[in-house]
Computed example of a mutant assay.
Amino acid sequence: MNTLEALEWSNWKNYSSKTKRDLFSQVLLYFVSPLRRVSNITLSQFELAGVKCETFEVNLDDEPFVFLPGKKGAILGWDSGTQPLPAFYWDKKNLLMNQRVEDYIKNYGLETTEEWDTFVNESTSSLRQVDIPPMLVQKYPIPTGCKYIGRLHAVTGEFVGSVEAYAIIEKDILSYLQAPQTFEASLNFEFPGEIFQENQFYAVLNPEEETYTVYTHQVCTQEELKKELQSQVYELLDEDQWEYAVGATTRRLFRWGNELVEDHSFWQNQTHRLVSKPNMFGLSFAGNNLRYEITSGNQLKQDKWTNCHVPLLDYLPLSSYYRARKILAKQEVLSPKDYLYRKAIIIDQLT
């Protein structure tokens, strides 16, 4: 058995920890640029929806990546409509109408199970069987055109990260965070959810911690992003690789199972935590519909969607196989407020 075959999931899962470490050391030796700083190599166990995978986490230049074993003959895409979801997930009794919902109803009806089946099948990629190579995939997606430099505490102003890069943009960022001078105005003050100055910086608030994740920003198109990644020996995932990375071919419409959040009861809050949990490879994907995630082609995954209180409509963009109706234009400038991407190293041959 050659090394690539050993990195297939069906073989990988049966190896001892020592054998996995030996194989992963070859991956790092032959596929990671010697210019990357490799650290925090950890063998971790991940599980979601009953699927378990023991694999490696590693930091490349302080950015976390996860190793995904490959899979030959992976079944991707969806043609099973609403199965096996219960019908009340597409009940429209609490519907908040918006233009996109109005268009969907006009085009599909969305009254009968058959009409919903057609809508779901046409909102997901076609059923297919493909070979997926082993991959190193970035654990968290990054806003397009952005480079992570650190974290800023919104209240104290303390910054942890690349101090030199932050010093250039510090004054402008802090200008957005100044509380009102009057007592009355300060009662209603809230930190902005995001701060953006094109070609300078982009910062996103983590409300629970009152911290901002801070990036420098440079305008780019998809082609420019690809060239930049190639110069760093990285790639974008193609649609097949992305779907595999999300759902691991579990043949479920959603990576976490069939539960959708409907209310704020204890059990539904449990479901919400499940939706936001890292998947069976330890990768994190959005649990909301705030941005698209781009692939190497023109197909966009996930979506920008305003919740309409029909669970299936609100959660379908989080499906492992969802295809956004929007097609990415070749020369479109990728705003970090609209698009995410993640770096990958594709292991397609070993010397």
Rank of each mutant, 00 (worst) to 15 (best):
E111D: 13
L313E: 05
T42E: 13
L136G: 10
Q218N: 09
T221R: 03
R273A: 14
R251F: 10
E235A: 15
A286Y: 05
R255C: 14
K304E: 12
D303K: 04
L136M: 07
P192G: 09
D103A: 13
Y234R: 08
V27M: 01
R291I: 03
D238N: 12
S335T: 08
S16W: 08
I105T: 09
D240R: 01
L4F: 03
T156I: 06
S125K: 07
L316Y: 04
T113D: 12
S296R: 06
D238P: 04
R36V: 01
D131Q: 09
P180K: 09
G70K: 03
L316E: 10
L96Y: 04
N269T: 09
T118R: 08
E170C: 05
F285V: 01
P69A: 14
V101C: 08
L316D: 07
K330V: 07
M135S: 13
S335V: 02
L318A: 03
Q230W: 11
N188Y: 09
D91R: 09
Y315N: 08
L7A: 08
W242C: 03
W305I: 02
P64A: 00
P336K: 11
Q26S: 13
F119E: 04
I347S: 04
W12K: 06
C308P: 02
L205V: 00
N307W: 11
T144Q: 06
L96W: 06
T211W: 00
E209T: 13
Q299T: 13
N279V: 00
L4C: 09
G81C: 05
F31H: 15
L4K: 13
R252E: 15
E164Q: 15
S25Q: 15
K337E: 14
V160Q: 12
E262Y: 05
V163Q: 14
K171M: 10
V58H: 07
I169G: 04
A286F: 02
E54N: 10
Y140I: 04
E332N: 00
Y341T: 02
L313G: 07
N279S: 02
F24S: 08
L225N: 11
E115G: 06
W12N: 09
E210K: 13
S231V: 00
C53F: 05
N40R: 10
E164N: 14
V310G: 07
N288Y: 10
Y341Q: 05
E63S: 10
G247T: 07
S276G: 13
T118F: 00
K337R: 08
F183M: 10
F183V: 14
K326D: 08
E239V: 13
T144K: 05
E208W: 04
S276D: 15
I294Q: 06
D172H: 10
Y30Q: 14
V219L: 12
N188T: 14
L7N: 01
T250C: 07
E210N: 14
D240M: 03
L85T: 01
H264P: 02
T213A: 12
W256V: 08
L110R: 06
Y140C: 05
T249P: 05
T42C: 06
V120K: 07
E115A: 10
K13S: 14
S320P: 03
Y321M: 01
W12Y: 14
L283C: 04
K227C: 08
K326S: 10
L43R: 06
H264F: 12
Q129C: 12
I142Y: 11
T55P: 06
F46M: 06
E47Y: 02
A87G: 05
E164F: 12
N107K: 15
E170H: 03
P336N: 02
F119R: 02
